[in-house]
Nucleic acid binder design. Sequence first.
DNA 1: TATTGTTATACTCTATAACTATA
DNA 2: TATAGTTATAGAGTATAACAATA
Lengths: 153, 153
Amino acid sequence: MGAPAKTSPTPAKRPAGAGLLAAELRVAVMRTSRRLRAEAASRDISPGQYSVLAGILNGPLTVGELAEREQIQAPSMTRIVNGLETAGYVTRGDNPQDRRQVLVHVTEAGTAVLQRARSRRTQWLAKRVAALTPEERATLHEAARILQEMSAT
Amino acid sequence: MGAPAKTSPTPAKRPAGAGLLAAELRVAVMRTSRRLRAEAASRDISPGQYSVLAGILNGPLTVGELAEREQIQAPSMTRIVNGLETAGYVTRGDNPQDRRQVLVHVTEAGTAVLQRARSRRTQWLAKRVAALTPEERATLHEAARILQEMSAT
DNA sequence: TATTGTTATACTCTATAACTATA
DNA sequence: TATAGTTATAGAGTATAACAATA
């Protein structure tokens, strides 16, 4: 069986076995992602573009590094960067130390659009998060950290 | 701004404001969903097909009901049902009380493939879930419930 | 010869609009 | 006239394979 869950915030629920938990988590994540995509669609920038801009805010990264971070293949990242470059949100620069690489830099317009998008993008989610109890928010905060770590594996 | 977050269960981390939490949650969910899709791809059935089969295990539903449950439009559900019907996993039946409606029934093959898929589909996730602490599993269990409720809104 | 990035191409999933049949 | 479902078409995002430039 699962763990005793001694200090669970919801005493009525026991932790399910790994298989059952994975199944319910998978449904929850897939459904939420579909909802997020639908709600955020056609405003500002795409989810992929958003992540890329956020990733290079603190300094340029190569196309390969970005692809690895986003867990997608290089050609897909090339397309995302193309879109951002056309929109004027990033520029491509050479790396003098390895001229095969392409460093993606964020522009001022890119920084601005990211900040605007940050508030709009999460509007749907933020509205629902705000309706939660502090305990539920803490749970989601911790869950986000766990999911990030699991996905990074 | 967000709530003061007075009784956080994770002392080192305070619950972020609704906007920040929504932002980090969004990234975590989108990244995990991309990972899930990639890991589960081309085995058994698609995520959408999986959810549909699971939904009609306890009795047939109409195409419209399924579309609403999955938060997608009717034509998208028609395509998913087409795929399942071609594969022999569901059958379409009339509703005698309203002949505009189409009731989607699961077949024996559909039930079997769902049970097989259930264990395979969540394999990637279950492996990582099993490596977590009981407390982390409890957190994800609760988070799944919260995400489900938020997505249902 | 190996690696980085791009181009070419195709597949999956989604959506909106137009259509058919039933109510 | 309104509703349930399908068909037609298009768009977004992803992938693999082949190619160019550089190491």
